[in-house]
């Protein structure tokens, strides 16, 4: 696809997402924070459902060698980076998606968060230019590089190659795990509802 075509497609996709997220108030930060702080799972359930659909979709296409999976070595920097990100998103009260969506709704706080996300990225670029860690994509080999805390590259397609089982097979195992988490949340919600409804019943009896 031409560069212009790619950019246009990305813009159309982004616009659809912008409308859907604006109407639903979905937020990734809320999906994790509300589950932990308020035992509210509205966003968490939506996230799990999307991940189940995506796992089936992506691994199906990867089984037949289609699609554009992300291809770079991973390592401890993913864990540490997202740990720092996780603290930041709860403090800022928004994830990368909701900062753009809220900025579009006229939320000045979200615009401010975006500005400082850019500044944070720029500060990182200065630090990287001193220690060159994590390794630049050009120096990645796909093999573990423990000295640089890199574990190499592995996804559903490499599993398929290694075990001669279609990527979708592994995908379905992941869907089963995600579904088990989803079920556990539904169960928890039901038990929370019961706890709430019991005192109101006794109140009625008292009246």
């Amino acid at each position: 696809m031409s560069v212009l075509g790619e950019c246009l497609l990305a813009f159309i996709f982004g616009s659809c997402v912008g409308v859907l997220v604006q109407r639903s108030r979905f937020c990734n930060a809320a999906a994790l924070r509300d589950a932990m702080l308020f035992k509210s799972f509205r966003n968490t359930k939506a996230l799990l459902v999307a991940m189940m659909i995506l796992t089936v979709g992506f691994t199906s296409f990867m089984s037949i060698g289609q699609g554009h999976p992300m291809n770079f070595d991973v390592g401890l920097n993913q864990m540490i980076g997202l740990f720092i990100f996780g603290i930041g998103m709860v403090l800022a009260g928004a994830c990368t998606v909701s900062t753009w969506v809220k900025a579009g709704e006229g939320n000045v706080g979200a615009m401010w968060a975006l500005l400082f996300t850019f500044i944070g990225m720029f500060l990182f670029s200065l630090l990287w230019s001193i220690n060159y860690w994590p390794p630049a994509p050009a120096s990645m080999t796909g093999e573990p590089n423990l000295e640089a805390l890199q574990f190499g590259f592995s996804n559903a397609a490499t599993l398929q190659e290694k075990f001669k089982i279609p990527a979708l097979g592994f995908g379905l195992i992941q869907v089963a795990v995600l579904y088990a988490i989803y079920r556990a949340i539904l169960k928890k919600e039901n038990s929370v509802n019961k706890v709430v409804s019991v005192p109101s019943k006794t109140e009625k009896e008292l009246v």
């Binding site: 920097n77 990100f85 996780g86 800022a92 994830c95 996300t117 850019f118 670029s125």
Partner: peptide
């Protein structure tokens, strides 16, 4: 502070939450 941590974390990890 949250914005700075998000930007820094994304770059360190090469990936964002999305």
């Amino acid at each position: 502070i949250g914005g700075l941590l998000m930007g820094f974390g994304i770059r360190l990890a090469f990936v964002c939450n999305v």
